[in-house]
Design a protein around this nucleic acid. Sequence first.
RNA 1: GCCGAUGUGGUGAAAUGGCAGACACGACCGCCUCAAAAGCGGUUCCGAAAGGGUGUGGGUUCGACUCCCACCAUCGGCACCA
Length: 925
Amino acid sequence: MTEHSYQPAEIEAKWQARWEATQLYRSTVDWSKPKHYALTMLPYPSGDLHIGHWFAMTPSDARARYMRMKGYNVLFPMGFDAFGLPAEQAAISRNIHPWKWTYANIERMRAQLKSMGNMFDWQREIVSSVPEYYKWTEWFFKRFFENDLAYRGEALVNWSDALQTVLANEQVIDGKDERLGQPVVQKLMTQWFFRYTRYADEMLNFDKLDWPEPIRNSQTNWIGRSEGAKVTFKALTSHGEQPLVVFTTRPDTLWGATFMVLAPEHPLVDALTTPEQRDAVEAYKAATARATEIERLSTEREKTGVFTGGYAINPVNQKRIPVWIADYVMISYGTGAIMAVPAGDQRDFEFARKFGLEVVPVVQPADQPPLNGATMAEAWEGAGVIVNSDWLDGTLSNGEKGRKNPAIAAVIDWLEAQGIGSETINYRLRDWLISRQRYWGSPIPIVYDPQGQPHAVPDEELPVELPEDVDFVPTGRSPLTYHEPFFKYKDGWRRETDTMDTFMCSSWYHLRYLSPHCDHAPFDPEEAAYWLPVDTYTGGAEHATMHLLYARWFNKAIRDLGVFDEAKKIAAAHGRSVDGLFDEPYLQLRNQGQVLGGKRIGDYVVCRGRREGGKLYADHVEVIAPIDAPTTDDPTVVHGELMKRVEHTLFVGEAMQLVELVAGGTVSIPDIEGENNVNQLKQHLEVMRMSKSKGNVVNPDELVRKYGADTVRAYLMFAFDWQMGGPWDEANVVGVTRWLDDTWALVHATVPPTGDPAAERDLIRAAHQMIDRVGSSLERFSFNTAVAGLMTFRNALKAALREGQIGRAAFEEAVSVYLRCMAPITPHIAEELWEHMGWPYSVHTQPFPEYDPEKAKSDMVELVVMVNGKPREKLLVPVGIDEAQAEALALASEAVQRHLNGSQPKRVVHIPARGGQEPKVNLVL
RNA sequence: GCCGAUGUGGUGAAAUGGCAGACACGACCGCCUCAAAAGCGGUUCCGAAAGGGUGUGGGUUCGACUCCCACCAUCGGCACCA
């Protein structure tokens, strides 16, 4: 027995205080050591830390700690993304200033974050809403403005009535804002933009990045690059000939363009429309404007459109073709106008058939009878040979996009020579709209002269401070427009009164951690030279096309403005390779999954038996489809969804009727063959996102009080694959509780001075297998197998100590390895037990144990004997057994003899032991 | 429609192309106890066994949860994108 048991509350408070007092997690530049910048996404100070924060941050901490023990100088900072709409919304509904609300939340959340026991260096904390921080957000804006990366422009923008502000494209999902899910409308407004598309191509290149495929895929889709050409048609308008430019990815089909379609909002529509068509066109435009607000998204909709009465000249063959308007052409993509090639594009084909327009085939697929424009049933979008196209006839159009297609390459060259078109890359990506008509954000450091021209405020006036005494109730205009002391700059000059999108603040926070109080630059170049770029970034996948893309753009933009130049010189002076060093902000990215609230539909059961009191004693329970539910009111039958089960007691249906399965009672589940068992029944469990309204929020503070931080950490790491997440189920915490209780007792055990060498060798072998397992698991973010490796060792240590054959020296060696392997995952108990062993502070500054394959090896192994790839027998053999011996033993084995039945194997494959696996012999019959 | 991810026991889940189900929860049996809890020991994919099992159907391979093709289901990104 131990003198006292494991009391997490005591030891966690004690060690957190000691770590802070000794500055154990202070990270400073040290050029003699390799660095590792581990970053986890900073929280928004919305009130309380939830279990998702723990799930994101504590495994990230374990990884950072592991890297530190592996010899890296690790930076693992934390801060608060403190500007933004939620603070303002909360402030409005509670009538409290956003400033007060935000800072109160930060106080609270900082304490909660500290309870995790993470190795955050709190001296590097940042808060994005303090002037010390946003001075530099403004400074970056100013640099962008001065270098034509920020501009003021009029554009159709996303306007949210609910939020009373404009939003970036990224913040609009299916026509609704991402915060409240309220409709967003298109409005023509003058706003601030960043030249996002300037880096589109570079952002499509992920060569330097170790990022998850789904994120790269989302970003690639979001940027939406397509190769093609711009071609200038001649519009015959009421004001004479006017150029009408279209973007096409299929310039090889130009000769098949038999009409044109413009988006109803296109500027040339009015000039093209003839008096006879005027009414129809106006009516269609009005209808489109209405439809935009509802749902213009539906892919299945039948084509609609109206003839403008006007014509254009196809520049390749001088053909006069009609110009239509239709809502399937989007004003926001390409040039808002298309050449329609009905024979080669299914949408154009449908449109042509509906309105009786001409179809001229220009790509003739091989192995098919010649296409006939009048009779073909659908467009041919694939490869083929060009026809009906003058000089291009006979060229191969191989189905590729861009210059890889010979026909497209030939046409582009020709268009450029003729001066009627040019090769063009078009992006789905729009420029980044960063102005917001709200109060709680970083001011935009711009002033307007009396003529309304924007000028940047001088550097010495930065930061433009956000005034506090503002009436911030939203009116559709920035609250700052009502604050005269703020907007009045000098005679006749006005300040910009919009504020910046908070994604601007979070695009560079990883730089401010480097030197949060630096007052002459956004960051100290020496710190940047050492720490940048971020080596490992962890956080949620929901930021794929927002924060993670903005931050990449931001990084590339400031790199080209020379912001990293000095850091680059310093890094080079220390012998670091600086080529491309600052091209990307985050080298490795890993996304955690989500902890959900629980879901599973229970089996629909029919229980039959005898009723006694309020209970049914069932001798048979059958799982059926709910549709087959009996319609009887027989009291000896209970049916419904299985909501819950405790041993042999079932709770059935919404009414939770009690059913007791009697001894010898049977269960039948048609999906599972054979005789079924009561514990095979599926019970109802709700899985959904945790939210306050659903009342399924798990409060981490309570869990910490109940189990301790180490248990919560380890359980979150153990419960699911970290990159997948899953439903929260507190019932399983007990496995981790037992593990730590056991560990406590085992390390406190009394052991004899000497033991049995064989048993000791076995224990040390188990320890080295653990090192390998825990280390490689943490390396690849596989936290659940790391914990499993530790538990496996616990089992070995427990069994060994029970036998009483472990001596003091072997015990200490094993415990030393064990505690150092535990330290990244459960830092408090590891530290406490390390101290208990009498070893010097701190376990966290110890090296991670070195894996010794020799010590991990055993003397005997199981030789796996396989027949046609199926394992049939295992033979215990000495570890160094050679191929001939192994094959002879395998051939002689009982199972093989049975399978051979007197014949000879066709082939014998020997698979030697490697990578900790057993040797195998496969016999092919 | 295009692109991507996922699919394994009663449950959470493991498995560089090499013993499928490690580790844990639950359940069952036993020990301990006057009793219960805790604890301890054992069993737990199906099958008596031979053998069969990783969403379905093919393929590659001596050998496939893993690689390839097609399909089904769920989730995510893009979407009348020219």
